[in-house]
Amino acid sequence: MTCLAPPRPFVPSDPAQAREFADIIQKDFETYIAEIQRYFLCLDDERARAFTEAQEVSQEYGRFLESLSKDR
């Protein structure tokens, strides 16, 4: 799974432009907040998946090492 962080909202440095596009900028911030929350959930899910995989690989490696010692 790939978790992609959302782009940061753009706020013009010119106060007049910021006021002119206030509705769009506000919507961009609201969208960002919703998307960053989904991003954090994705990261949590990926961390849990990777942790489980690492445990499985570690156990598999242990079995592999055991099989090598039995062959000697």
Rank of each mutant, 00 (worst) to 15 (best):
Y61G: 13
A5P: 01
Y61A: 15
R19F: 04
T52R: 12
R72T: 12
D14F: 06
T2Q: 11
Y32H: 11
A18F: 01
R19P: 00
Q17C: 00
L4N: 08
I24T: 10
D45R: 04
R38Q: 08
T52I: 15
E53W: 04
E46S: 08
A50G: 01
E56H: 12
C3S: 00
R8W: 00
Q17V: 02
E30M: 06
Y39K: 03
I36L: 02
E20A: 10
M1V: 10
V57S: 06
A5Q: 05
E66F: 10
L43P: 01
F21R: 02
A18S: 04
L43H: 02
D45I: 07
V11E: 11
K70H: 14
L65Q: 12
G62E: 15
E35A: 08
E53A: 03
M1N: 07
Y39M: 06
L4A: 09
E20V: 00
C3K: 01
P12N: 14
E35M: 07
Q55T: 07
P12Q: 05
R19K: 09
R47K: 15
A16H: 11
D44K: 06
I24F: 01
P15G: 05
D71S: 14
L41M: 11
P6D: 05
Y32W: 12
D71R: 12
T2E: 07
R8V: 02
E60P: 00
P7F: 01
F40C: 08
F21M: 04
L68F: 11
L43F: 03
E20I: 00
S13N: 14
L68D: 02
I24D: 10
Y39E: 01
E30W: 04
Q26C: 05
Y61S: 15
I24L: 08
R38L: 14
I24R: 05
Y39I: 01
P7Q: 04
D23V: 07
F10I: 14
Q26D: 13
P6G: 00
D14P: 04
A50I: 13
C42A: 05
R19N: 09
A22C: 03
C42P: 04
